[in-house]
């Protein structure tokens, strides 16, 4: 068995900034330095990987590309601490190291034939992107796709070109929001939970997936309940500080579950059992 602590080297094919500012988000499109790794590699939307640079450290990020996008992986990373700052220094042609895939995935097989609503906020769109991409690439397997996304300002929106594409090609219904009024913004102004009520998707034969800042998730979950979604219909992802990523080092637990191993994807019905989930 392969040593799960040894990462693979990946080469950056392309890197670009999604958002500006101190806590900017940069997307890396990477491929394995050793092509043979692709033979062993298979991931599903929602899964994560430990991303880092030897000498700096490692942190857990969701893989923000869908496995249907062949030949590369994508990571969208917000500049936050020591490791992410070092990663942000890297450009196309540089390499970093990836260990994974880790954790569980969104049960997209179970969602076949259903309408899917994704509700994202800020960098929280990163784990939702592969879900959207997967559905687009298997469009006939799913019902309607509704994408609700908001960020502080329009500049803070990740994956902008893709949203434009989504709306225009008819794959999905797109609803965008900014927190505060700004000039030339044609869409909704306000917080994501409010936009959700505005859009008011039907819970019938539907699955809702949400990810974003904790406070947003809290209100989105409340509002989904108001809209009639049962806890089994609602999925979210959790995050915690992680070190090993494989359920050994102990720190990422919420209750008896390890976020790194049993998560990051949890149904709301699962989380309702665990008081620590929303700490």
């Amino acid at each position: 068995m392969k040593n799960p602590y040894i990462p693979y080297e990946v080469k950056i094919e392309e890197a670009w900034y999604e958002t500006p500012g101190d806590r900017c988000i940069k997307t890396f499109k990477v491929t394995f330095a050793d092509e043979k790794v692709w033979d062993d590699w298979s991931h599903l939307p929602g899964q994560c990987a430990m991303v880092g640079i030897p000498g700096v450290g490692e942190s857990m990020f969701c893989i923000s590309s869908s496995p249907t996008e062949k030949g590369y992986l994508r990571f969208s990373i917000m500049k936050m601490g020591k490791n992410t700052s070092a990663l942000h220094e890297l450009e196309a042609g540089d390499s970093f190291y990836v260990r994974g895939p880790l954790g569980n995935n969104f049960p997209l097989e179970e969602w076949k034939g259903k309408n899917v609503i994704t509700i994202g906020g800020g960098i929280g769109q990163a784990p939702l992107r592969p879900v959207i991409q997967w559905i687009r690439d298997n469009r006939d397997d799913f019902g309607e796709l509704t994408v609700i996304y908001g960020a502080r300002t329009s500049a803070d929106h990740c994956f902008k070109p893709e949203f434009e594409d989504l709306g225009s090609c008819g794959d999905a219904c797109c609803h965008l929001a900014v927190d505060v009024e700004e000039e030339g913004w044609p869409h909704f102004v306000g917080f994501v939970p409010t936009l959700l009520m505005e859009v008011s998707p039907s819970p019938e034969n539907a699955i809702a997936v949400t990810c974003g800042p904790p406070i947003m998730i809290k209100f989105v979950l409340e509002n989904l309940e108001k809209l009639g979604f049962a806890p089994e219909q609602v999925y979210t992802t959790l995050e915690n500080r992680m070190k090993c990523g494989i359920g050994k080092c102990g720190r990422c637990n919420v209750g008896h579950l390890y976020v790194c191993k049993d998560g990051p994807v949890f149904s709301y019905s699962q989380l309702k059992e665990i008081p620590e989930a929303f700490a």
Partner: peptide, 10 residues
């Protein structure tokens, strides 16, 4: 008790 931290040292 078995919890651990992982650190890089150069």
């Amino acid at each position: 008790c078995h919890c651990f931290d992982i650190q890089d040292e150069v």
